[in-house]
Design a protein around this nucleic acid. Structure first.
Lengths: 248, 248
DNA sequence: GCGACTTTGTTCCTACGTTCACATGCGGCT
DNA sequence: AGCCGCATGTGAACGTAGGAACAAAGTCGC
């Protein structure tokens, strides 16, 4: 199926997944909290502290960290620098991932201008668009190429991650071109469900969906208010203060 | 920490709303697929068709749709227009949600210029920033106000959704101002965990996390490739540096 | 050097979300 | 008008995530 069920692959007994996706997402959050703390000179943290800063339960945090082997010291806590190292290794951040952005509209512009992308390690090395007026001009210090050259350029610059910021109608073809260029990880901002080969991983960031989910909560809250019935049914398991979102 | 666990159905009656968050997200996707289909003149769809287009299992789709009451006709399928109506009602899209964007940098610009925001129903009615050079200028047809005026303006324009596009350090204060202005739904693009009262719903969209998750998949795949043999379960029991942790 | 305290790593358990499979119910066909 | 087929809606099973509690392990104080 498209958008692989990242859970147990049916027949794929193999390593498919030892670390749950949800845990991977949280690990990325811990990583940011940790680097921020290190900058402030913090060298040790307990699971309680780190969990508080990341907005998760401490047991969940310890379980997540256990996926990368023993990194803590009982009775003391975790060495921040060491932990960062371990998480980076697990997430594959030890080597850089060249990023290509397709569709240099408003959003594409914004992403290209982020420069090294939030948290370095993801250098943007290629920009593409169809608009002839954009080709060749420099955005964020990088020239825009025509989408026809996607496959060649991606191979040449060893792009590992493709970001799609095109209008919906162009998203699938942009995706196909990226895949043709050997890109197997795609971040899709276009509000469509992409069809890709099984070995390509797609993550979708959908603003409309996010807004509609918020709308749903707002609507429910309103109806609860008006109904006067206090028995509200909360479903979101992570709606605790500072919820960490990441649904799906 | 959160009280409402209620699983039994004490009140029972307004049972219709125990919709899981994951289902809400999918419903938003179905909604888009449906509107797109309607534009193409499609009036009826089976669960199989719709599920295929949305990239989910048909059973999951039917269960999701069951949350909004019987909308289909057995032996026939779903009436697209009717379904759209039901989903919109559940998601609270029958009334418009005024959106405020805080932080008119690259991303804020992009969002403001989307105009009505992807899929209408979410008109952007206020823009805020700290930069004096930006105050007063028009972005996407709307003037930028100073963040100090957030509370007053949000109340006045009945903003229900706040979008935070500020740098990390400014995010929490932007959030506080929005909350002070009565905004209880927040979409946060800043890579920080916001602290909010219990009745405020925050959803976080974190590009760095998304990229790092992709990086993780890429890393895992690479190690599978390079290992050659299928015995990649081997993990880093000892001090294997590149281990990806499998098994537990 | 020994004991007590602290915090990790893990085990168990509960709850949820997804999927399978089937009974129910509706439209079309003869 | 009645029967057949087909797709919905739902009940049960399965697998996974998350939280509480506990045991191992290491440090600090004496």
């Amino acid at each position: 199926m498209h958008e692989h069920d990242r859970y147990g692959t049916p027949g794929g007994d193999l390593a498919s997944r030892a670390v749950p996706e949800a845990a991977v997402g949280r690990l990325a959050v811990y990583l940011r909290v940790l680097t921020s703390m290190i900058e402030q000179g913090v060298t040790k943290m307990s699971s309680e502290e780190l969990a508080g800063a990341a907005g998760v339960n401490s047991a969940t945090l310890r379980k997540d960290l256990s996926h990368l082997g023993s990194s803590g010291t009982r009775g003391v806590g975790y060495d921040t620098a060491r932990l960062v190292e371990h998480i980076e290794r697990l997430l594959g951040l030890t080597r850089h991932h060249s990023v290509a952005v397709v569709g240099i509209g408003n959003l594409g512009h914004a992403l290209a201008n982020y420069g090294g992308f939030p948290d370095r390690g993801f250098p943007v090395t290629a920009l593409f668009d169809v608009d002839e007026d954009l080709i060749g001009i420099s955005v964020g210090g990088l020239p825009v190429d025509h989408i026809d050259s996607i496959p060649a350029v991606c191979v040449e610059r060893e792009v590992t991650i493709g970001v799609i910021c095109t209008p919906s109608v162009a998203a699938q073809s942009a995706c196909d071109l990226l895949v043709a260029g050997g890109v197997r990880c795609i971040l899709n901002f276009a509000p469509v469900v992409l069809q890709v080969p099984d070995d390509v991983e797609v993550r979708r960031v959908d603003l409309a969906v996010e807004l509609q989910i918020l709308s749903f909560y707002e609507a429910r809250r309103s109806s609860v208010d008006s109904s006067g019935d206090g028995a509200l049914r909360v479903v979101a398991p992570v709606s605790d203060a500072a919820g960490i979102a990441v649904g799906r």
